Simulated assay, not measured.
Amino acid sequence: MRTIKEIHKASYHPIADLITYNPLPSPKLRQIDPFIFLNHHGLQTYPKNNNGLPFGPHPHRGMETVTFILEGDIMHKDSGGHESVIDAGGIQWMTAGRGLIHAEVSSKKFKKEGGDLEILQLWLNLPARLKMTEPRYFGLQKDEITHFNLDDDRVKVQLIAGEWGENIGSFDSLWPIFLSTIFMNKGGKFSKDIPMGENVFFYVVRGKVKVMGEEIPFRNLIEFNNDGDSIAVEATEDAVIILGHAKPFNEPLVAQGPFVMNTQAEIRQAYQDYQFGKFGSWQD
């Protein structure tokens, strides 16, 4: 079993009226290569006639975003011509690649009617060879995503990417990665084999879990040592976790604003290309 290196508590960084916690990066942890950034928005309840999510048109290059919609919805639009509204339980996966502009806002229905909202967005680095790949976007609703149960149905796995036994994730990644959302009833248990040499991303979204005998409450990120080939988890309360793992790229990382590249010169080029309209045009 892998041992725990450190537990990182998410810090509070509200965005307008949106409750936001951020466990990665932190003063003690720059990345869990290739997992580089996580924002946890909510849980909160929006009133009727609200303004919804504040993420209007903005650019990205050199990375991917995976968005977990636990409550509420997201209306996505980008300069590549992709549009969708993904509801609670759904997932969005966007590859920024060489560059695009996108907006992530609430639907007209949500802004009119209000309701609960809890959304997490994870940024994945891209290897240098794929930094300038063609942008792409996929959004899937809850029922379209691979799911299965463990431990007499006390553990429910939403398999986003990679493989778990005979189950195959619903999103085709450009490079090998495992990513899942796991919903656990109190007392539920699971173990997961993770190859030596791969880094583990483990974030407790809701509830409380026990890992290696240590109880971890929600809004905490576990940093593991690379000293074993499996982990074991038990829910001491009803819980939700995001679990991922992948081989590190071990490449230079330069992140500035919405761009994630390998050198400062590439960051400057990204800003210049954006200013010169090379990320596509935006139409409301």
Rank of each mutant, 00 (worst) to 15 (best):
V209D: 02
G169M: 14
Y271M: 11
M184T: 09
G89W: 03
S173D: 05
S11P: 01
E166D: 15
R154S: 10
W282P: 03
F110V: 13
M63V: 03
G213R: 14
G197W: 04
Q264D: 13
N125G: 07
I267H: 09
R98D: 12
M184V: 11
E214R: 05
H147S: 15
V211N: 11
N226W: 07
K109L: 15
V211P: 11
R2D: 05
G115Y: 08
M261N: 03
G81V: 09
G81S: 14
E251T: 01
M261P: 01
G80Y: 13
M184K: 08
V254K: 04
S79H: 13
R2A: 01
K5Y: 09
N167V: 02
V157L: 06
I74D: 04
E163D: 12
I242G: 13
K192W: 00
F148V: 06
F35S: 04
F148H: 05
H82S: 15
E83R: 09
F224L: 11
G228C: 09
F148W: 04
T236V: 15
T263E: 08
D33P: 08
W123T: 02
T263S: 14
V155P: 01
R219Q: 14
K186R: 11
G62N: 06
W164L: 09
S11L: 12
I242L: 15
L117W: 08
M63F: 08
W282A: 07
I4R: 02
F201D: 00
L43G: 00
H82F: 15
R268V: 11
K5N: 15
V204H: 05
D152L: 09
G139L: 14
V200S: 06
E163T: 05
W164F: 10
F224P: 09
F190I: 02
H245D: 01
K189R: 14
K142F: 06
E198N: 14
P34T: 00
D87M: 13
N220F: 10
A128M: 02
I168C: 12
S79P: 05
Q92V: 06
V240M: 12
S173V: 10
P47H: 03
K77L: 07
D78G: 07
I216E: 04
I91G: 01
L253F: 08
V85G: 06
L120M: 14
G187R: 00
N49F: 11
Q121C: 04
R61P: 00
H245T: 05
V155F: 07
Y12R: 12
P252N: 10
F279V: 07
P27I: 07
H76N: 07
H245I: 01
I36H: 02
K278P: 01
S26W: 07
A10C: 13
Q269N: 12
D151I: 01
T65K: 06
L122W: 04
V254M: 06
